[in-house]
C-alpha cells in the first residue's frame, strides 16, 4: 500500500511574524518545525506501510529550507520526500495550496491513501485536506482517530465528533485527516537518521508538476487577508479570601448579584 503524507512547515514558537504587505506569515525568520498534527499523519502512514508493504512519501509545498525538515522524516520510517518549491507558490491560501499539492500528488503517481494532519498550527484552517480530495476527485474523511480496517479497495475509519465518533467506510484512493488521538509518533532511530543524511529530497517547481501558475500562490488565492491582529484579552480576576466556608458564601452572593444564579 502506497501512502502519501502531506506535511507543512510551521513556526516552532508562538511568536509568529507577519508580513504587513501581504498579510502572510514570514516563514524564513522563526525556528521551523513540522506541523505537530502532521507527525501523527506520518506515524500512521509508516504503520500502514509496515503492515501492508509499500512505501510512504512525504509531500510538502514550501520554501527550499523545508527540504531539511522533510529529510528528518526519513528517520522515522518515511521512504521518499518530495518538495514543491517555486516563487510562483508563494502567498498561497488553502485553495492554491491544495491545487499545488494535487499536482504534486499526480506527479508522484501511484498512491492508495493520502494522510494529512487535521489542521496546521499556524493557519488553523483545516481546509487543505478536504480541498485536496476535491481537486483529486476522491473521497475524504476528516478528524480520523482510528483506522479500523484498510484493504486494497477500501478504508474503514473512526471519525471523531464532539460527543463520540462515527464509523465511515470509503473506497480507495482517498484522503484522511487525522487527530492526535490516532497514535503516539515514534522517536527517530539512529539508523534512520544516518539514512536520512544520505537521502535526497526531490524538489519540483511549478513547471515540473505541470501546474497552471494562475492557480498557484497569491495569484491563485481567492482569499485576501485584509487585516490580521492579535486579539487583546482583558481578563481581570478577583481572588476571594477567607476560610473555605466564607469563600463559598461570598462566591454564591457574587454569582447571584451577577444573576448567574438564582435562589428559590
Amino acid at each position: 500500500m502506497n501512502v502519501i503524507v502531506c506535511v507543512k512547515q510551521v513556526p516552532g514558537t508562538n511568536e509568529v511574524k507577519m508580513n504587513k504587505e501581504t498579510n502572510t506569515i514570514i516563514r524564513e525568520s522563526a525556528e521551523a518545525i513540522i506541523n505537530p498534527f502532521d507527525e501523527y499523519a506520518i506515524e500512521e502512514g509508516v504503520r500502514i506501510k509496515e503492515n501492508t508493504d509499500g512505501s510512504v512519501t512525504v509531500l510538502s509545498m514550501g520554501i527550499p529550507q523545508v527540504a531539511d525538515l522533510l529529510r528528518e522524516t526519513i528517520a522515522v520510517g518515511v521512504d521518499n520526500a518530495v518538495l514543491l518549491s517555486d516563487k510562483a507558490f508563494a502567498g498561497a491560501d488553502s485553495l492554491a495550496t491544495a491545487y499545488a499539492l494535487s499536482m504534486g500528488v499526480k506527479k508522484i503517481g501511484k498512491y492508495d491513501l493520502i494522510i494529512c494532519g487535521k489542521q496546521a498550527t499556524d493557519g488553523d484552517t483545516a481546509q487543505v485536506g478536504p480541498s485536496l480530495a476535491e481537486k483529486l476527485g476522491i473521497p475524504h474523511t476528516t478528524y480520523v482517530r482510528k483506522i479500523e480496517q484498510i484493504t486494497e479497495n477500501y478504508i474503514r475509519c473512526q471519525r471523531m465528533t464532539e460527543d463520540g465518533y462515527e464509523v465511515i467506510e470509503m473506497p480507495l484512493p482517498a484522503v484522511i485527516t487525522v487527530v492526535k488521538e490516532i497514535n503516539e509518533p515514534r522517536l527517530p532511530s539512529i539508523k534512520g537518521k544516518l539514512k536520512a543524511k544520505k537521502t535526497e529530497v526531490m524538489v519540483y517547481n511549478a513547471d515540473d508538476i505541470g501546474a497552471d501558475k494562475n492557480l498557484c500562490g497569491l495569484k491563485g488565492s481567492p482569499t485576501q487577508v485584509v487585516k490580521t491582529f492579535v486579539p487583546e484579552h482583558e481578563i481581570s480576576g478577583e481572588i476571594i479570601e477567607g476560610t473555605s466556608r466564607e469563600q463559598a458564601q461570598k462566591l454564591v452572593q457574587k454569582l447571584m448579584s451577577m444573576q448567574f444564579m438564582t435562589c428559590k
Binding site: R186, L187, P188, S189, I190, K191, G192
Partner: peptide, 11 residues
C-alpha cells in the same frame, strides 16, 4: 522500548 526503537540499546 523507546531506547530499543531508537537503536540506542546497541550503541
Amino acid at each position: 522500548q523507546y531506547l530499543a526503537q531508537s537503536d540506542l540499546c546497541g550503541v
